[in-house]
Nucleic acid binder design. Sequence first.
DNA 1: GTCTATAATTTGATAGAC
DNA 2: GTCTATCAAATTATAGAC
Lengths: 189, 189
Amino acid sequence: MKEQGAKERILQTASELFYQQGYLATGINQIIEEAGIAKASLYQHFPSKEALLTAYLLRTRLSRHEERMAFVQHLAPGKEKLMGLYEYRLQHMQTNNFKGCAFTRIAYELPGLNEDALTQVRAHTDMLKSFIAEQLQVIKNPFPAEELTEMTDMLLNLYEGAGLQGYIRKSAQPMEDARKIALKLLTTL
Amino acid sequence: MKEQGAKERILQTASELFYQQGYLATGINQIIEEAGIAKASLYQHFPSKEALLTAYLLRTRLSRHEERMAFVQHLAPGKEKLMGLYEYRLQHMQTNNFKGCAFTRIAYELPGLNEDALTQVRAHTDMLKSFIAEQLQVIKNPFPAEELTEMTDMLLNLYEGAGLQGYIRKSAQPMEDARKIALKLLTTL
DNA sequence: GTCTATAATTTGATAGAC
DNA sequence: GTCTATCAAATTATAGAC
């Protein structure tokens, strides 16, 4: 990890800790210790802890999006890619020991979220929403606007709700159930 | 507020602050200041900040449940009471300026949640789930077990997902949309 | 039971040498 | 650019007087 430059090492360490322990529960001291750099070096690259948070959110949002896209890449557009969304999340939950959604964590940790951070959190669900809507339009075209919105909301809420339940229960079951329900909903189209 | 006794005043103040600002962001100092008592008095009644958290969660869970029940009391069992669930949450969101779910906040603030707290969080969604399942069985009886589970999950996820979206967007729209979708789902039974 | 005073640690952030 | 040393403030919690 040493060969990656100080700034990169800081951001990677902070990202891991923010996600695993939470933003507030993670101190600057722990970050510099685990990154193996001095405190003043951190502040050379990031003016404040809050700036580190913004950088973390931006990076995480983009990389999650890329991972998701890579996961569904080989799947057929439409129903298969939509199922892939649930399957990707299932895999992510299990790989990360049910640590939950990075963006939901930040949003709930900081009720008074600054605008930059709030923008990143919203952009994350915007991406999910448009992904769902796009795939739905592949399945059925033309898709009446109102019905499309309804089905999109339904699938998004199902996904987010199951993510929340899975986090609280430390279980993949809610998301697996949600996947099955989503499949059933799609076959009625 | 003075006439309520020290312990009660502490718990009320802490509850308000934990919900509004979050548990981690709220210091003991702020609690005693706003409650108007001395620090040692707080520790007389609660052995630690964590004990205060547990008391907060228990009280909030019970009072939310009572409020919810009172809200749907005059509604007919079945479809009407189910719609009342969404309407209660809508009212709650607006009254509390979209501060989100108290239990989701705690669950996400503290990834390493102690068992007592985790139990409270789970008990909260257990209550929601059984409420939904009960009302569904009023609408349709007998309700095949598998279908009942599916419909319950769907309504719960819809509810939780919309709650999350509403929190992030500071908007009642997602929950209103969810309520309409739920209504449509119920009329197909 | 409630108070004041204080302890011991940790927090985010900076000054200044190299 | 990276370091050591340090800052002021805030953290949870306790001792001991009244």
